[in-house]
Design a protein around this nucleic acid. Sequence first.
DNA 1: TATTAAATGTTATATTATTACATAAAAAAA
DNA 2: TTTTTTTATGTAATAATATAACATTTAATA
Lengths: 140, 140
Amino acid sequence: MFKEEQIIKICKQNKWRLTEPRLEVLRIISLSKNPIKAYDILKKLANKIKNPKPPTAYRAIQFWQKHKFIHRIESLNAYQACSHGHSHVGAQFLICDDCGKVIESNLHEIPEILKKSTENKTFKPLRWNLEINGLCNQCS
Amino acid sequence: MFKEEQIIKICKQNKWRLTEPRLEVLRIISLSKNPIKAYDILKKLANKIKNPKPPTAYRAIQFWQKHKFIHRIESLNAYQACSHGHSHVGAQFLICDDCGKVIESNLHEIPEILKKSTENKTFKPLRWNLEINGLCNQCS
DNA sequence: TATTAAATGTTATATTATTACATAAAAAAA
DNA sequence: TTTTTTTATGTAATAATATAACATTTAATA
Ligand SMILES: [Zn+2]
Ligand SMILES: [Zn+2]
Ligand SMILES: [Zn+2]
Ligand SMILES: [Zn+2]
């Protein structure tokens, strides 16, 4: 969704420091076809940075998560670039059990449903994550 | 939701072997107020079984997951007894960020929404997991 | 320039989960 | 019942995922 220049611009605007490990980690995640795991990010990072250690990868991951440019797919322990504009409270993913592809598909109806259900139950929702497993069109 | 006798009965009916580690692990999870982590299950299991090792806990967890008596709360790496009748394709959890309580709240509207969105996208959903973070009524 | 704040480098370790193989128990077949 | 097969467990080792702690560097700001 985001080109690198856009991200650089957004970071500058917000005075977020766009350091080398951060930029390289974002590139690695963005270029990955499917969600990528932290230690695979780390391996690829080794091509760009001398002998990187886990905290280097995890800190960069955390940075991009905090600013909503990437998502963590909880059921896969893996990370994927946001494809829906970098700031939504809820996320929805269609995960293909066969090929591992993950399609981000943020429905705006979901919040309404939540609102209803949670008003009744007096639970105040702040953010959510929906992971749907199944088969993509390629695989079914 | 389930009393132990019911579970024993269901296991017998289905010829699922209800061994000691399985039964003790189910009790530990059921008695836990909040979702409980695998290694905390293991610690409690040590009060019942001599020097249990991780596979003992994980195998029992897997057994109860397979038969849908417990859920894994993905964002917490923790397990909780199913409170909605042991066989639904989708699950929804309200997770309190403050006290850690998790309310299972399986809306039946959700599948309809999914159906629509996924028909368009030609993705065939098989199961799903929705985790909503926020504040429970006690904590807000 | 000096001071402070933020980020990184590095080592170690914590947490979560699985593999592999031997043994035991239960179910099924003979 | 005995034998055979299947399923489950015990145990040791290790894999996979993630964080803590502290020294050093880099950038922001005073
Ligand atoms: Zn997104
Ligand atoms: Zn697929
Ligand atoms: Zn349930
Ligand atoms: Zn609460």
